[in-house]
């Protein structure tokens, strides 16, 4: 499928696929989090995305902002851990940026994700190299923007973003955590992938799966 826009159906399918991926990888995410955190990231993300899919299924949205804000609020109230306010902020700000539209082109979708990431940064005060979800999402958005600017379709942009997210995620392994519970471990946090960067990469995998299937 070669598409040039992302519809509300795409967004709903993206969320459902993200739920599947975090469910499949729940124990892996928890294992990563038990190494450097409080071992709840897998369970928290699954609980949050189950709530999101249920919410989105119960009341189909007619506009992107409404849909994305509903996703954000559901994550805030259901996740429990730091991922709640962080992923919640990501989707809330995406909604604000997207506005009351029924579909987004590549540039608008990229801008929405960028607004979401800016919100996450403002919330968590994370910078590049702090061993956080930022380290996966930021390069993914750079790759997305570059692909879209170069005339790529949505599928190609999503594929480029996923590759960059994976590379960013892997770059967190040797880093010393400077944010969140992992930061209490200091040097002992090295040698492990960051759980947030790992779940964020699944977000881009879900997107790639959704727009290319």
């Amino acid at each position: 499928m070669s598409t040039s826009t992302i519809s509300l159906d795409h967004v709903v399918a993206w969320l459902a696929r993200f739920r599947e991926l975090v469910t499949e990888q729940q124990s892996y995410l928890t294992e990563l989090d038990s190494a450097i955190g409080d071992a709840d990231h897998g369970a928290n993300m699954v609980r949050g995305m189950n709530a999101v899919v249920e919410k989105v299924g119960a009341a189909p949205a007619t506009a992107a902002d409404e849909l994305l804000k509903s996703v954000g609020m559901t994550l805030v109230t259901s996740v429990g851990g730091a991922a709640g306010p962080l992923y919640g902020t990501l989707f809330l700000r995406m909604g604000v940026s997207a506005g009351p539209v029924a579909e987004l082109d590549g540039a608008a979708f990229g801008a929405a994700l960028r607004a979401g990431l800016d919100g996450v940064v403002a919330r968590g005060k994370a910078e590049a190299g702090d061993k956080t979800m930022f380290d996966a999402i930021n390069p993914a958005l750079d790759a997305w923007d570059a692909a879209v600017a170069g005339g790529a379709d949505i599928a190609a942009a999503a594929s480029a973003a996923l590759a960059a997210a994976e590379k960013g995620r892997d770059s967190t392994e040797p880093l010393v955590a400077r944010k969140g519970r992992a930061s209490y471990l200091g040097e002992r946090s090295t040698g492990h992938l960051d759980p947030g960067a790992t779940s964020s990469t699944l977000l881009f995998q879900a997107l790639a799966d959704t727009v290319t299937s």
Binding site: D40, N44, R47, M73, V76, T77, S78, V79, G80, G81, G84, P85, G88
Partner: peptide, 14 residues
């Protein structure tokens, strides 16, 4: 306090 249903965590809405 807590994220509901006995789950450890916090909820900004609460």
């Amino acid at each position: 306090a807590g994220a509901g249903e006995g789950i450890t965590g916090t909820d900004a809405v609460k």
